[in-house]
Design a protein around this nucleic acid. Structure first.
Length: 281
DNA sequence: AACCCGAGCAACCGCCTCATC
DNA sequence: GGATGAGGCGGTTGCTCGGGT
């Protein structure tokens, strides 16, 4: 018995995972309650011990996963906001499928959730564009169409709250600064920076600005609107072989509920630190 | 009403790394 | 230095649910 286990009063040696019939599949409310209560009392520790000592017929891994992805109080549930989508796209273009690393910069989001988002939403876009998600064509489409479009919508969203001091605006300022020294899009040889400076003109009365506040993330209903096409996009379309017709039909951007409060100075600073450290490595 | 299909998501699996013995 | 176990991570699977026919 190790130190962690010795903290508990145990009348007899608990069965190992092999000895008990291990449960699999969806967790019941009762199991959730048991695990939550156990972790709340004893804290996160040795998951294999948690599994044994809590009486749950689950593996340590299963307990850990359930706690981290679902029961943890910090877990945010619900739609992925525009800001989060933008960050996921940016960080994925930088780090690839490093889901846990990306998740560290999205407060309350789990690597599993981000991975699912990528697989269901982003890969769907690639499929609709009939290109591989790892292809240059798709990466370019992401950099020159999707990300600028997201930025546009985030800006539109913050402009629709003129009276409110928006942390989104602050975030976009920071991203703008970051673009100059940290985040670039494109090949290493000829990178293209994408930030508010290349965001297409906003149509103040556009329904977009309304949508951006409340749109649900679950559907990809809002089609790309050609009247917002930026010069970058035009040159991209000419160069990439993707027709505007093609893009106009398929390039959609989710809405999402607001998470502006997440973009605290602290988080933005942390993000910059992470990106800076990553550059050094 | 029944069936089919795809999207979304929770959970599992297998591999890797790291710590401990 | 090798063996072993635990934790972490990314890939994959399979279930549920809603929409379409």
């Amino acid at each position: 018995m190790d130190v962690y286990e010795s903290c508990f009063v145990i009348s007899e040696t608990p069965p190992s995972e092999e000895e008990m019939d291990v449960r699999k599949g969806p967790w019941t409310e009762e199991e959730d309650f048991t695990l939550k209560a156990f972790v709340n009392i004893h804290g996160e520790g040795r998951w294999s011990s948690v599994a044994r000592l809590s009486g749950l017929k689950r593996t340590g891994k299963s307990c850990r996963l359930r706690w981290l992805n679902y029961l943890r109080p910090q877990v945010r549930r619900g739609n992925i906001s525009l800001q989060e989508q933008l960050l996921i796209l940016q960080l994925h273009s930088r780090w690839g499928n490093r889901w846990s690393k990306i998740a560290q910069l999205l407060p309350g989001r789990t690597d599993n959730e981000i991975k699912n988002y990528w697989r269901t939403r982003v890969q769907k876009q690639a499929k609709q564009l009939k290109c591989d998600v790892n292809s240059k064509q798709f990466r370019d489409a992401m950099r020159y169409v999707w990300i600028p479009r997201l930025i546009e919508r985030i800006c539109a969203s913050s402009e629709s709250h003129p009276g409110q001091p928006s942390t989104t605006t602050a975030y976009m300022d920071r991203i703008s600064n970051m673009n100059s020294d940290q985040i670039t899009y494109g090949n290493t040889s000829g990178s293209v920076q994408v930030g508010p400076s290349v965001v297409p003109e906003l149509s103040g009365t556009s329904s977009d600005s309304q949508d951006a506040q409340v749109a649900s993330v679950s559907d990809l209903t809002e089609c790309y609107n050609p009247r917002h096409v930026s010069s970058n996009l035009i040159s991209f379309q000419i160069g990439s072989g993707l027709s505007s017709e093609n893009l106009g039909d398929t390039w959609n951007i989710d809405g999402g509920d607001s998470m502006e409060s997440v973009w605290t100075e602290e988080n933005i600073w942390f993000l910059r630190q992470q990106l800076y450290e990553d550059d050094l490595n």
